[in-house]
Design a protein around this nucleic acid. Sequence first.
DNA 1: CTGCGTGCAAATGGTTTGCACTACG
DNA 2: CGTAGTGCAAACCATTTGCACGCAG
Lengths: 146, 146
Amino acid sequence: MSDYSSIEALRSKGLKVTPQRIAVFEAVLKRKNHPTAIEISEYIKKEHPHISVGTVYKVLDLLVEKGLLKKVKSEKEVMRYDAFTSPHHHLYDSESDRIMDFEDPELDRILRDYFSRKNIEGFRIKDISLQIIGEFHQKNNKKISV
Amino acid sequence: MSDYSSIEALRSKGLKVTPQRIAVFEAVLKRKNHPTAIEISEYIKKEHPHISVGTVYKVLDLLVEKGLLKKVKSEKEVMRYDAFTSPHHHLYDSESDRIMDFEDPELDRILRDYFSRKNIEGFRIKDISLQIIGEFHQKNNKKISV
DNA sequence: CTGCGTGCAAATGGTTTGCACTACG
DNA sequence: CGTAGTGCAAACCATTTGCACGCAG
């Protein structure tokens, strides 16, 4: 717990370092499967039974705002959270509500090339993410990298 | 109202044709701005004050299931709906919760080429959609096509 | 006719909010 | 120490559900 690097990350964004923030941030970093706020809250409860759901939501919003995390909308109606690392895309299983990461520098290069050629009038692009919807054949949990 | 083609569409999917279904379907077709269920419900109320919100949800689910509409995830926590036309992508305004369409056959071709070369192990792709997140400079409401 | 579709209202569940208390800097 | 952060519980709001009634086929 209280990994040095997550404390650093909070501090680098000018945020007060609290046990709640460390716990929430590290929970998202550790649990790679795009957890929901509720899942994070329950995961944290093992170590910090006193941290309330309301606080988890507040901390998540704050971390998203500061660019430490990303919100990912799942196929269902709940929000999921993702640690902000290298740019990547998402595979959605249309059966379950599972989300997996997909990253490939080549794809990113192709997209970058395309959008620097095309210019969308009146719109400044901040981020591009691909939702690849389909079905898993296997029940693997590995991060998919090409 | 009760446009002939929407009745046809319902019938072609083997659905009973009811005033509620016609109204909901046509509301999404007419209001191009990816309305929420609530917006659809209020829009419909002008002509059909008696149609309940619960019915709107049920009809929307049914039409999505039958492939007449698509669900679109907005940046906020509400679902939005989109008439199923040609394949297209979405521009999200990160300030407001506005969504606009983006379509370009060239982009679709590029993506198709890419994913037929890459093979994602254990995953069968059903649909691909690009979320392009950024900011509009202008307050235009036109569909963006390249 | 006969069962699927609808209206209504209550229930659900994720997320937000208000406020007194706590602890970070 | 002072103020931003937290815990708690109530409030909120989109969506779902159950059931009696109504209407499309």
